[in-house]
Write a protein that binds this DNA or RNA. Structure first.
Lengths: 355, 355
DNA sequence: GTTAGCACTCTCGCGGTGAGAGTGCTAGCG
DNA sequence: CGCTAGCACTCTCACCGCGAGAGTGCTAAC
């Protein structure tokens, strides 16, 4: 395709490109030179605009669905827009309050759902939250509950309030009192470490001391090994898929179907979202940035949430590339901060001390 | 509309109606007299079939999308078909095995997801499982974990392995050892009762003994009251919505959107599904049986799952009225039984004795 | 450099049309 | 009296052509 003429755009070129993008975001229809000439600030005629737009197309910022249609921004244009032309509109106080009010407290899993819903509701796009893989979280407490015969229900609570559970089968029946002792022992000795660290440590310990382990210790380690292997993979909480059905770009069922198929693969979603986990700010994926976005002409706006300096997961929105970035980027940012804060506040008693 | 001529159908009428239904279920297209004449068992000419079909239409079993189109079964016809003409095809051994293999063990919440997925996968419709409202479940254990300051994380485990949790804020900070004692005390005294019963009993107790309660008891009851109020409303686990997008009846986006809107209201879904909780077998809702099915021309095939004699929730499938009932009804039935069994087996140690 | 004018192109909606499918009715047959 | 062949009628749907409208690209003039 045409090479992108980096940074060579004149002030006027930029102004016109910006106009086109803003108009297109609103109207969802190819933008004509005429409409830019009319509504744009600089009082140029349609013909002049046409010249510029032809250039912009040649340079890869615009494209025409067909001859004699208006023009539509490309992914490159959106990136430029977001990087250096956009004027982010801070989240209105009312919405900010609404977010804080709703994201106040409650269990961590409840917070995930609420955050996803807020994202969707306030952006009119689909909201996504990736929950932490349990292995990366810091242990708060572990509990074993006898269930029947040799089956034991193991409940693991992370310091940020996430809970996962698993039924494990032991080699022999263990009396309830002993399970309680083991729970307490494990909680005391491993509290404050990540599950992954704990697992590694247990493995070492097992190999070293296998010979002189007594029965109780063996049981303890057996339980711990099984129990601490909960929740290897992060989950995704999606909300407001129906928001996307209202968008004109999803007016034929084929595309809707492709969208659903793409979202069905949770693992891929997680992978894409988690690209955004590093580096504080909000990241935006458009077009060829990922399979998902290129197949569907979708964008992903996402950011990480964290407690302290430990990133837990990501959250963001997904929708057609044509979206109101000026509004949505601050929104995602705000939600990332608020969720981080909510998680930290709810469980701030003992700051998760790293070993 | 025309009155339904109950039970007045001759053997031939019934045979033809059955043919029409079976053909329509396969083809999704209005059935012509010609095709019935050709593929039907009784060797009648199209003209004769036409006469009968005209009668069936008058009686409310068939309708024409427009003059000179074939005929389509009505909800009444489906009901008749299911009630007295259908020959249920038992779930093939291979599928039965597949179900049992996948629904073997694991936490209760995991089972819910798996069941929903199996329903969807094997029926090519949307699978739904309604999880029990925690209040109706029998307590297995309760655990309080200090979280920060006056916040306490309360974890409630039901005898069937469902877990719910809640962060509660106490009036004063309670030391960890006391929380452990309280957990043990509550688990011991209330194990085997439903949360609802427990709540009522606590309320009575509080009113009676308010005067002579000591501080520890007051704390205990405060914690118990808050903690046992988890999970008032049942949840729904949905899987395979995209299956429905492939159906020809959802070929325009408007209908897709209406469908999603209808399903967004979880509470209504639960209400409809839970109509099926009473009375052992599989229930089928078609057409005017509920808002949901009439708006969308959908059907719901659902049954209850239970442990012992205690119904816990419902499970089933949702899809266009035109569905393969002969296959799907046994399937739902099988999943209901298998899930019940899986839940019972996983937690069969102490049969939940009622007070 | 900017603009007005103009020819050109492409889409989209509209009405007409003909093929095809399916029915309802009637007359004739066993 | 029930069944069937035949036929006219109706309705849908895909196709075609056409004209309006929108928007562009180019050129010539300011």
């Amino acid at each position: 395709m045409a090479d992108v003429k980096q940074g060579k755009l004149s002030a006027r070129d930029r102004e016109i490109l910006k106009d086109v993008i803003l108009t297109y975001i609103l109207s969802a229809e190819p933008v004509s030179s005429r409409s830019v000439s009319k509504h744009g600030k600089l009082g140029l005629s349609a013909a002049s605009i046409r010249n510029v737009m032809a250039d912009l197309e040649e340079w890869g910022y615009l494209r025409q669905p067909h001859t004699s249609a208006g023009r539509v921004p490309t992914a490159v244009a959106y990136h430029l827009f977001i990087g250096s032309m956009m004027e982010a509109r801070a989240v209105p106080a009312k919405e900010r309050l609404y977010i804080q009010e709703n994201l106040k407290a409650g269990g961590a899993d409840e917070l995930m759902g609420t955050a996803s819903h807020l994202l969707s509701e306030l952006s009119s796009q689909m909201g996504i939250v990736v929950t932490p893989a349990m292995g990366e979280t810091v242990l708060k407490a572990v509990d074993f509950i006898p269930v029947s015969g040799r089956k034991v229900l193991c409940i693991v609570v992370s310091s940020t309030g996430f809970i996962d559970n698993k039924v494990i089968e032991t080699e022999e029946e263990i009396p309830r009192e002993e399970l309680v002792r083991i729970s307490n022992y494990l909680t005391d000795s491993f509290c404050g470490q990540t599950l992954r660290e704990i697992r590694e440590r247990l493995l070492r310990q097992m190999n070293e001391e296998r010979a002189q382990m007594d029965r109780v210790l063996a049981r303890t380690i057996e339980l711990a090994r099984s129990g601490f292997s909960v929740g290897e993979t992060p989950g995704v909480v999606v909300d407001g898929a129906s928001m996307l059905l209202a968008k004109p770009e999803l007016s034929d069922v084929q595309r809707v179907r492709r969208m659903f198929d793409a979202f069905a693969d949770k693992a891929r979603l997680v992978k894409i979202l988690n690209q955004c986990i590093q580096g504080g700010g909000v990241r935006v994926l458009i077009g060829e940035d990922s399979e998902l976005t290129s197949e569907l002409d979708f964008s992903v706006v996402a950011t990480a949430y964290a407690v302290g300096d430990r990133p837990l997961g990501t959250l963001g929105i997904v929708g057609p590339s044509r979206m109101d970035y000026e509004k949505v980027i601050p929104l995602v940012s705000c939600l990332g901060e608020t969720l981080s804060q909510a998680l930290a506040e709810a469980f701030s008693g003992e700051p998760p001390e790293r070993r």
